[in-house]
Structure formats: structure tokens, C-alpha cells
């Protein structure tokens, strides 16, 4: 009679059950469809592009080689690259990787810190107009990014910040409505007693913020940080508008440029997949470390 699904849903609850078996099969199929493309990406990235066509259905690399990685990272010579079916054009994915790291890190630090400051004022301090200002902040969630991106482009251009890190970072650096909302929610839950004890000890608001609120919220701050970093890492529309130049080009923009420059006949699929893998791996690593947090944070966004 117990239908409360136990962990692992052990067959003991309802022994042999066709429905349950079918359910597991369906789940398994979905997992295969989810993971197979990643395998295909890796398999292609380790293949020799020139002979890729000989085994288009094999799940193993065709003529295994590190060549695709070497040529997109710029460590293969033009001849080596062309021998394995690359175009020979110079690719500098180390540099794009560096740009992505710089841009995403700065966005994460700025956004989380400034949003935390604002969230503290909205959650813990009393001041005239507080709730109205907060409401206006949250309304910004409704405005579709494309609507603000055109005028933002004009602003960044007029400020002379096109093709600079500050130009790519600026719109995300100070806040996003979501970050403020997310942190305020956590700050509201902190007990007043701790704060008041600190006040009695003569601590000011800044001291309380840095010594009490931030340390007590390290878990949500880390979660928000990881989510912000991943979003910044994956952003394409904005950096593609303001950061086309090689010196500040981030991975997403570089990938798209690589794709449009690779020849239509005989494209360098292996190189392209090696490059996409380079773009995908850092967020995957973050996910390995912070997976549980990210999964649980979705619970939070789901019920907002």
C-alpha cells in the first residue's frame, strides 16, 4: 500500500511491475539523448578531420589525434593543421579562453557584491521608499534584454567603450534584478538577534554587513556566484555586439566567428568541436564542484 516513492524506488514496494519498468526505460532513453551529444562532441574533437567522412557513424574517434585541440589553441603549425583538414587560419582559443575568464570573473564579482549590498539595504535596513524602490528594481525582470541592449549599445559606443572589457562587462557589473531579489530573500531570513548583538557591541552597518551578513550567507552567495558566472560565460548577444575585436573576443563570439570562417566545402568539424569543448568544459567543471547547489537553487527559482 505504500506508494510514497522510496529512494531508488526499490522494486520491493510493488514487485515486478510493467509500468515501473517502462518508466525506467523512458528515463533511461532521456538520459541517453541528453548525454550522447556530449560524447559525439568529444569523439569528433579527437578525430582527424581529413578522414572523418570514412566512418560517419562510429562512436569512437576516427584516426585518433590531439590535432584539433592543437590547431584551435594555436600550437600547431599551418602545415600540421592543414594536413589534418584544418583551414590553416590562425586560431587563438587560449586568448579567447582568457578573455572569457576575465569577463565572467569580473561580472561575477561585481554583480554578486553590489547586489548583496543592495539586497542588504532592502532586507535589513529601514529607509523611506524602500519597498517602492525594490518593486521598481524587480519590475526590470519583465523587460526583455533585446529591448535594453540596443540603447545600451548606443551608450557604450558613445562612451567610447566598444571593444573594451569595461564595455562588455558594464551592463552586468552592478546588478541584475534577479541577483538582488535572490539575495534579499536570504537576508530576510537572518535572525535579527545576531545583528542586534553586533550593534550593541558598537558595530556600524558596514561592519555588520561584512562581518555578520556576508559570512552568514556564504552558501547563497556561492550559489549565486556560480549561476552568475555560468550565465556570463554563456552570454553571446551582448559581447557579440560590443566585443567583436580579437583582443577582447570571448569564447562564444570566437566560436561563432570560427564557424562562419570555416570553409563551406569540407568544414573543419573536428576543430570546431574541439573549440566547443573548450568553451563547455569550464562550466561543466564548475558544475562538478557545485552541482548540488545549482540543482537545489532551481528549486528556489521555481517557487519564486
Amino acid at each position: 500500500m505504500r506508494t510514497t516513492s522510496r529512494p531508488r524506488g526499490s522494486g520491493a514496494v510493488r514487485r515486478w511491475n510493467v509500468g515501473r519498468l517502462l518508466a525506467w526505460v523512458a528515463l533511461f532513453v532521456i538520459i541517453v539523448i541528453t548525454l550522447a551529444p556530449f560524447l559525439w562532441m568529444a569523439r569528433t574533437a579527437l578525430s582527424n578531420n581529413r578522414v572523418l567522412f570514412t566512418e560517419p557513424g562510429s562512436w569512437l574517434p576516427v584516426d585518433f589525434t590531439w590535432g584539433p585541440f592543437e590547431r584551435v589553441l594555436g600550437s600547431a603549425s599551418t602545415e600540421e593543421a592543414q594536413a589534418e583538414g584544418g583551414s590553416g587560419a590562425s586560431l587563438r582559443f587560449w586568448a579567447y579562453l582568457r578573455n572569457s575568464v576575465i569577463v565572467s570573473t569580473l561580472i561575477t564579482l561585481g554583480q554578486v557584491f553590489f547586489s548583496a549590498m543592495a539586497a542588504y539595504a532592502f532586507a535589513r535596513l529601514r529607509w523611506p521608499g524602500r519597498d517602492k524602490v525594490f518593486f521598481v528594481f524587480v519590475t526590470a525582470l519583465m523587460v526583455p534584454p533585446v529591448f535594453t541592449m540596443l540603447p545600451n549599445f548606443v551608450l557604450i559606443k558613445n562612451l567610447g567603450l566598444l571593444n573594451t572589457y569595461p564595455g562588455i562587462i558594464a551592463p552586468f557589473f552592478f546588478m541584475t534584478p534577479f541577483a538582488v531579489f535572490f539575495l534579499r530573500q536570504f537576508f530576510l531570513g537572518i535572525s535579527r538577534e545576531v545583528e542586534e548583538a553586533a550593534m550593541i557591541d558598537g558595530a556600524g552597518y558596514f561592519r555588520i554587513f561584512f562581518r555578520v551578513i556576508l559570512p552568514m550567507s556564504s552558501a547563497p552567495l556561492a550559489t549565486l556566484g556560480v549561476l552568475t558566472f555560468i550565465n556570463a560565460w554563456n552570454e553571446y548577444f551582448w559581447p557579440q555586439l560590443v566585443g567583436q575585436e580579437e583582443s577582447v573576443r570571448v569564447l562564444t563570439v570566437a566560436l561563432s566567428a570560427f564557424h562562419s570562417s570555416t570553409p563551406q566545402t569540407g568544414p573543419d568539424w573536428a576543430g570546431l568541436m574541439a573549440a566547443t569543448l573548450i568553451a563547455a568544459v569550464p562550466t561543466m567543471l564548475l558544475f562538478l564542484v557545485f552541482g548540488r547547489r545549482i540543482v537545489n537553487s532551481i528549486q528556489f527559482t521555481g517557487v519564486r
Binding site: R20, L35, N234, S256, M273, A279, M284, G291
Partner: peptide, 28 residues
Amino acid sequence: LTRSVVLRGIILLPYLISNVVVALLWYW
């Protein structure tokens, strides 16, 4: 069926990589 966080992590994987990566991967 399950409480596995690992499984929930796996199904979330595609969401964590960039649209650009996803697009190129499927284009290929």
C-alpha cells in the same frame, strides 16, 4: 522513481552550456 541528485544533475547538463555551443554541436 528516484531521489538521485546525480541524475538531476545529468539532465541539467545541456542547460549549463552556451547556446552557441549547443547550436554548433547540433549543426554538426
